[in-house]
Design a protein around this nucleic acid. Structure first.
Lengths: 217, 217
DNA sequence: GTCTATACACCGATAGAC
DNA sequence: GTCTATCGGTGTATAGAC
């Protein structure tokens, strides 16, 4: 090895610190203490605390997306998507990558380095989710009205908020996910209508949508 | 007056600082500088920075909910709810109460005082939104499958995430809201089906829902 | 109620021994 | 590559003059 595992220890320590203590309590000293190494090594291996956090978040994001990729690939329906979403949330409660991203975004408001890391993480997740949404929508009755890119962003952002909310009210977050899952069943059923009803619905949606847009504009 | 307006100035300064600079950059000095008063006054009027922030957030939350109350009262359909949601988001971009709450929740992970303020804010919003959702669902085809309390929590948490996301990607957040609004139109149309189709849908939903729950449990 | 001055802890970051 | 020691800066919080 070119170097010891200090670098790696700092990266995971940064991740843990961000998840457990939040962006407000983050410092080179707290991260180093968590990693069991000297504080000065933060600046040797990375140039600043910000860059360490950035690197850690990018890596965690890539790992996380890679981990869920095959589960996402197996998703063929909205119900399955919601089920994967539930499992993801359950797993994330322990692993905390999404919570880490939430802290990253909170800190990104005034820190350009963190902001770029946050943008990278969100766009990575968005791309992944968008492809799943697109696939689920193929042949659907409302494929032409739904916007996969926008929905993917809504889902990503929604999860960020949900994970933050989970941190202060676990039961409430659970309740929210349950409600969404139930609503998902509804849409699923709708999409499962016969071809005649489906066509009628499609026409109607198009009409109402245009009207709504016109009113709005 | 028993005292000058220093107290009030500190409260709004805390609000602004939390919104603009985030929880990570928050300090008695930065807040006092923003308010144009001496740093020591933070500890005279409030006992600590945490208590100042707590008070500011509770007040801002109450004000904000009160402000939107009449708009919420006028909501009679899902489309209108989504429209109010859009206006709220537009207004919040400038005023920043939701962004403030997002920062509050980010800081609440390890701070009990902030956590209690965050819980207060969220439950206040949840109660308000829940009553609107409940009203919108009255007489709806899927009134018996939707859970107003859960949906209200999902909406609140979702907005938190969306506002954080807006801070790093304005266009993406816009796109997400557009997609949701379009999806809202869909549900609206669905709910507008004839009584026969509506009854069939309801029965089907109940059946599928039970199956899904059973599989899940 | 508001100010100055000050205590003490922690922060990021660097220099230099090993 | 890792450590100790240290700098200047900022944080919370308090004491005391006004």
């Amino acid at each position: 090895m070119t170097g010891s595992d200090t670098r790696a220890k700092l990266l995971t320590a940064a991740q843990d610190a961000l998840r457990d203590d939040g962006i407000a309590a983050l410092s080179a000293r707290s991260i180093a203490a968590r990693a069991g190494v000297n504080q000065a090594l933060v600046f040797y291996h990375f140039n600043s605390v910000g860059e360490l956090v950035e690197t850690a978040c990018r890596r965690a994001c890539d790992d996380s997306v890679l981990f869920y990729r095959e589960q996402f690939a197996a998703v063929g329906s909205l119900a399955e998507l919601l089920e994967v979403g539930r499992e993801l949330h359950e797993r994330e409660r322990g692993l905390g990558n999404v919570a880490m991203m939430a802290q990253l975004m909170a800190g990104a408001q005034r820190d350009d380095v963190l902001a770029s890391a946050a943008r990278y993480a969100m766009s990575t997740w968005n791309a992944e989710i968008e492809s799943v949404v697109r696939r689920v929508l193929v042949g659907s009755a409302f494929a032409d009205i739904a916007d996969p890119a926008g929905l993917a962003r809504a889902i990503s952002a929604g999860f960020i908020g949900l994970e933050l909310y989970d941190g202060i009210d676990r039961l409430g977050a659970q309740q929210a996910l349950d409600a969404l899952q139930r609503l998902g069943v509804l849409v699923e059923v709708m999409d499962d209508l016969g071809p005649v009803a489906s066509r009628a619905l499609r026409a109607r949606v198009r009409r109402t949508s245009r009207a709504g847009r016109a009113t709005h504009a």
